[in-house]
């Protein structure tokens, strides 16, 4: 397989006395979906924030296209082609789809000494990009608040892809969604992957991960418990790893195998 787009080696992150990450190694290749699984508080968000330049690692190194790099800010990571879709702050509901899509990178056209947003282009591209992700909007001027949760995720994903993401990080994109919305988002992940983008898919739902993942890494208490390829691992095993194995096995016994 090809060389990884981004590689993180033995990443540690301490918040004062709290050790959020204690040696996490992880990489993403072009065209794959690498799932990062872990229970609440396992350190998933902390880890991807390190990957996207929000946090600086306490130790460990980050390599982009094989070269060592240090992100000073999220902008640096974005410039290196690493885009993150955070679940809670993906979109501004009161603003239109177009305005959200282009926020911070509005296309302009000149009019004498003035520059205005080129809404014709902006609307056209927005509708096209959304359609390519399988969502046909009534109009690009409708407020994001009128979209469903899955459609909102898709706007954020389409935006990241359009602006040249090489690595797309999705932080629990499916956790608040219903069944149909979830399958839409999973289908979108598949489309993105087929364009040669490396997807990092964070979730604590093993079924969602199994549906699209090529590789799976489980985080537990700030450590990786290894990476498995698709087909090499069973859902139950992932579930066990996430919960720290033994305890869940005991729990499962007492609950009669319902987890």
């Amino acid at each position: 397989m090809s060389a990884p787009l981004i590689e993180l080696k033995s990443i540690e992150k301490h918040f004062g006395p709290v050790i959020a990450l204690s040696g996490v190694t992880f990489d993403v290749k072009a065209g794959e979906c690498h799932c990062l699984l872990g229970d609440n508080g396992a350190g998933k968000s902390t880890f991807i924030k390190t990957m996207s330049g929000v946090h600086k690692p306490s130790s460990g190194e980050i390599l982009v296209d094989g070269k060592k790099i240090a992100f000073e800010s999220p902008r640096d990571a974005m410039a290196a082609g690493i885009a993150t879709v955070y679940q809670d702050l993906a979109m501004i509901p009161l603003m239109s789809v177009t305005r959200n899509f282009w926020m911070g990178r509005e296309p302009e056209k000149r009019f004498g000494p003035f520059k205005f947003i080129d809404f014709d282009k902006a609307n056209k591209v927005t509708l096209e990009e959304m359609a390519s992700m399988g969502i046909h909007l009534r109009g690009a001027e409708q407020a994001v608040g009128t979209l469903s949760g899955g459609e909102r995720q898709t706007v954020a994903i389409a935006r990241a892809v359009y602006f040249g993401a090489k690595v797309l990080i999705l932080d629990e994109p499916t956790s608040a969604l219903g069944v149909r919305q979830t399958s839409n988002v999973l289908a979108t992940i598949d489309k993105v992957r087929k364009r040669g983008i490396g997807v990092v898919f964070i979730t604590h739902n093993v079924r969602h991960a199994m549906a699209v993942g090529d590789r799976f890494t489980v985080l537990n208490r700030g450590k990786t418990l290894g990476t498995a390829k698709r087909g090499e691992v069973k859902p139950e095993e992932l579930q066990d790893l996430m919960a720290g194995g033994k305890e869940l096995a005991e729990l499962e016994g007492s609950l009669g195998g319902t987890i």
């Binding site: 999220p74 702050l89 520059k115």
Partner: peptide, 24 residues
Amino acid sequence: TRTKFGNWIFASGGDAQAARYVGV
């Protein structure tokens, strides 16, 4: 309504954190 800066005004008031993340 017509300029980039106007979009940033909406964005700053709509959700400052989301706006910051995309470089506003």
